[in-house]
Every structure is written in structure tokens, then in C-alpha cells.
Design a binder for these strands. Sequence first.
DNA 1: GCCTTAATTCAAAGCGGTTTGGGGAGCAGA
DNA 2: TCTGCTCCCCAAACCGCTTTGAATTAAGGC
Lengths: 339, 339
Amino acid sequence: MTLKELALHLKLSPTTVSRALNGYPEVNAETRRRVMDAAKALNYAPNLMAQKLATGRARAVGHVLPLADHQMINPIFAEFVTGASDVYSAAGYDMVLRAVPREQEMDTYRAMAERRAVDGFIVHGPLVDDQRMPVLRKLGLPTIIHGRTNSMEADQLYLDVDNREAFERATQLLIGLGHRRIALLNGLETMAFARMRREGFEAAMTGAGLPIDEDLMSSAEMTETYGYTMASHWLDRPNRPTALIASSILTAMGMLRAVQDRGLVLGQDVSIVTHDDDMSFLRNEGEVPLFTCTHSSIRAAGRRCAEMMLHLVTKGPERVTSELWTCDLVQGRSTGPAP
Amino acid sequence: MTLKELALHLKLSPTTVSRALNGYPEVNAETRRRVMDAAKALNYAPNLMAQKLATGRARAVGHVLPLADHQMINPIFAEFVTGASDVYSAAGYDMVLRAVPREQEMDTYRAMAERRAVDGFIVHGPLVDDQRMPVLRKLGLPTIIHGRTNSMEADQLYLDVDNREAFERATQLLIGLGHRRIALLNGLETMAFARMRREGFEAAMTGAGLPIDEDLMSSAEMTETYGYTMASHWLDRPNRPTALIASSILTAMGMLRAVQDRGLVLGQDVSIVTHDDDMSFLRNEGEVPLFTCTHSSIRAAGRRCAEMMLHLVTKGPERVTSELWTCDLVQGRSTGPAP
DNA sequence: GCCTTAATTCAAAGCGGTTTGGGGAGCAGA
DNA sequence: TCTGCTCCCCAAACCGCTTTGAATTAAGGC
């Protein structure tokens, strides 16, 4: 069933039918009703491609996910993407998703833009000195960064969590409990967010006059195994840290396993603070949750980014501004006074 | 830059340019080279929408993810989707992703099909008595199920893991170690895969003349918390089970936490066998991995499904058949003789 | 009653490609 | 020389929708 056929059936011109269907004012109310009814009855649905070609708008936004070697990043993307996709779906937009190796990323962005496959991009996982920024800028499509980086232009739109402040606060909480030897198990510090978290940590430490011990700082993909391995390593030191900070609840789980392996008691012998992305499959639940954490829903971020993008492509760049979210600091059972 | 402009520039007709670019034989080799060079030099890329409209093929495949209340299912989708997306990207296909509430799922499939937004569907998370099957069948688009269900037609293409056999084998392994009281922490048994796992478990138990204790079987979303809660419950029983079977490495992690909480030793006081989807962020690593498990990569499944789909839409349904994969049974440190 | 203006509707021209149905040139065979 | 093929290339139709510009009719103003 095409528009033309429908028009023929109604003894109207395609023009009128199209307008009736798309809510244009210059069509008689009665006529519109007839058209609507017929469309429903005959099960008419406009051909997406034709619509896109005619309007020049793709009604889709692109997400390209770097397929890293260790692709820990995935569950976070997944969570974000579900949030975003939900918003798109409700607005009749599509999400087109491409997972490509890092080295093909630029080409992918370029290809999608040149071929008009999407109306805009949401960029994931910004790096320190991220090379993608100038390229994206040149493509000229609306772009929103989930996160921030030093290499983006001042007017670049983004949505980020204040990672620096969050980790400063988390560290201060531990310091306030009397901890002096605090280890930071950070995410990959090529990622912008990890860099900022480290800054927050260091600010709190030096702010309290505590030394920064490079041996108590480590940075890698945030897997459970990694949390277990590094925590084990630290806890077996002669002068072991009394508190650990994790960048993800996954690494925190690994840390906890290491703690329990050694017969130590969480929140007593060792305290743990983690960042919690509120991932649906790994909830930090309970009246008093297991982990004390800085908390920010990644899915909510996905939703919000999608909303910003839709606003951007439908109503223009006015009135859409970057957002910097503050994390909640949630008290759990994993922290206590330093032994 | 449009095809017409490029043609004008080359003093050729759009026809010839199009053919040259798309590798049709009826064009002089020298001409083709000229066209190719010019296209590259002028940075020409065909407009996707126009191409899709003209050819009638969307060059995209649809994935609709049910947005359940408890959306544990996500990381698995994510993993699958990354695998699939990788294959699509390499072939110049797009993945269009929609996350919608269960009740809108059918409409979403219908809408995508009617509007020709995709060339085919890959269906996730088949249920027992899945209502989507007849609907999808009627839409007439190529469809591949990741999993199987009783409600699909005999000729329906699918890719599944032999869950029944895997869990039967896992159970037999425990029985062979002398375990008699074995608890099964299953996924949601509305899902077809969970149902089959249960069947495998029961077959092994009755096969060994062991009773099936409903109190030692539970079914829910496979979260860490759930694993912790149920394992705690079971381990605190007067006559506690000596072995636990988990449906996901996440629940297994929760179980382990419960075991450690009680000062019990894994593989000694309590044995655990789990299914491992080989998720990138939660690897069951080590020379001898932590968990004894039935193992099958969900990402590999995503890749294979995508390949099947591409074959289906480009070369037709001949020579593409359903696949039933057998899980590896991997020996880890989490199992030992019954105490 | 004539001129405006508003309300509806339509024919036709895109959007940017692909594909069908020739058609001219060059060459071998009769 | 004429016919019959290839080999290349082109004009034009088409994919299914949107949108521009104009036409038709009805209502309002004086």
C-alpha cells in the first residue's frame, strides 16, 4: 500500500493525503478524518526510506561504539544505549548502532555523516586528547558527548557527571574516617573520566596533607578480575592500605572477593568506596546498600542525552545546553573507621 | 556532492557512473577507473536513503529489545549485539535498535516491517509460548531467533545453545562428585532457555534416582543480589545443599559472596557450577578458572546470527540452516567432592 | 455585483539514487 | 555492402514520499 494507492482509493491527490496524515493545517477536518480512517483501515504505513529521502532527515541518531581489545566498557554502553533507545523509540526515531575497531572509528563517523544515514551523533567514551573531536566538528552534524574531554571546543555540547568532585568527596569521606593509606583502583586513564577521578582523589589527599603513593594507584579496564587481582596484591603488602576506592561496582565486587578470601571483614579491616553506575544487573541494593558509593545512573544519562539530541535536531540548538551532574554519595556497609 | 553532479563533472551519464561505482560489467575498464578516481577525489558518497529507496532494500536489520521491569537481560543483549553489530558493520549493513516495553513490542515489529525500515529481524529472548512468533511469521520478513521456543514453526530459523544437555551434564558432574542435595537457581522460567535448563537438571536428577526438591529450585532474573539472597537462604537451612547450580556468572558471584560470608570454603563445603556466557566484563579467567561452568560465548552467537541473517537477505534462504551449539564443560575451582 | 481573502485541493517538480530499454560504434562474417 | 554481434553508454522511467506554486471555490467587504 503506497500513498498513491491510498489517494486513488480516496479519490484525493497524494498531496492532500500526505498533508492530512502529517497534520498540516491546510486540510479540511472532515477530509482529514476520512484519510486517517482509511489509512488505519487499509493498514497504510508510509515508506520510511521515501520519507527520509524526501525530507532530507534521517530520523535516526548514530552511536558508534569502539570495539576495544578488552571491551569492559560494554555493559556501560549497553545501559546508556537502552536509556537512549527508549527515548528515541517514543519519538519515532531510530538508533543506528555500529560497533567498530578503534582504528575504523573516524571512517565510520565520516561515512555515516556523508551518506546522511543519521541526523546526529552521540559520542561515547571520550579520551584525554581525543582525536575524534576535530573530525566530528568538521562533519558538521549535531553532536553530543557523553562525558567531556580537554580536546573539545568550548561550545561543544556534552552531558557529564562531575567525576572530579565525586572522587574528591569519596576520598574525603574515607579520610574523615581516619584512613591514611588509601588505594585508588581507577579505570583506564586514557579515558577522560578516569583522569578526572584521579585528580579528585589527589586533590583530597594533598588537601588533607596526605602523601600520594604511586604504588597505591592503578589504572586498567574495570573488570571483576582486575579488582580481585589488585586488591589481593595490595592487601598482601606488609603495610596494607586500610581503604580502597573502586571506579566501578564490578571492580568493587572483585575487591570484596579478595577481602573475604583473606578472612578480613569489610567495613572493619578494610573499607571500600566505589562508583556505582546503577547498572540494572548489578544493583547495589538493600535498605543499607552493600557498598558506600558515589552514584549516578548511566541509563538516566542515556535518556537525557537522547532528549537533548532530539531537541537539537527538531527544534534547533537554542535552549539546549550542556549538563554537569553531581553524584549522590550513598552510605553503605562497606566503610567504617580506620582500624 | 550527488551522483548527477559527479556525472556532469565526468561528462558521463548518471547511469554509467552508477554502474561503474557498483561494479556492473557493462562499463569500460578505463571509464570505471576514471569514475572511481573522481569519486574518491571529490569525496563522493552515495546518499543512503536514495539508495535504499531505489533498491527497495534497507540494508539494515532490526533488533528489538524488550524493556522488562527488571532488565537484567541487558548485559546479555549487549554482548550479543556487539557481536552482531561488528559483522553488520563489516558488511556495510546497519543495526537498528529499539528498546521498547513488552506491550509495545509487537507494534514495533509491525511498524518496522511495514515501513520497510529493515530487511530482517533477529529476535531476542524467546519465551515459552511466545506470542511474537505467529506475528513475526505473518510479517513475512526473514527472521532468526536467538534461542528456540515451542511456539515457533518447524521451519523457523534459529541459533541456540543446547541448554538442556548442558544443564544435564552439569548436574551429572555434581552427582558424580557425590552430591545429593543440589539446588538450582534458574533464570526466569517464562524464558524458553530457562525452561530447558530446568528440564536438563531434572533429567539428570531423576536419572540418578535422586528426588527433585521444589524447595531447592528457584527462578528469577539473574542478578548478583538474587544469587546472594537465595544462596544465603539455602545455606542457612538445617540440611543445606552441598552444591548449587547457577544460570549466570552474575548469580554465581552472588552465591560465592554468600558462601564466603559464612566462612565456608568454595569447592569444599559447597560446590558451584554455573553457566558462563563469556561476557567480556565478567570473565571466568585463570589457568584454572574460578567457576566450573558450562560455557558458550554469547558474543560469538551474535556474530553467527548476523552472518546467517546477511546470508539470508543477500543470497536467499538456501544453504542457511538452524544451529544448535553444544556448551563446553569447563572444570574450575568451584567444585569438589561432596563433604 | 465586483474584488479580496481565506479555505481546500491538486498537478508537478523535486529528493538522489537504480534500472530498463534502447542506440551508436566498431568489427567479423557472408 | 549489408547483417548481426558485441561493447559502451545514455535518456528516461521509477522508487514513494514531501513540498512548491497554482487553481478552484466559498465567504466576506464595500
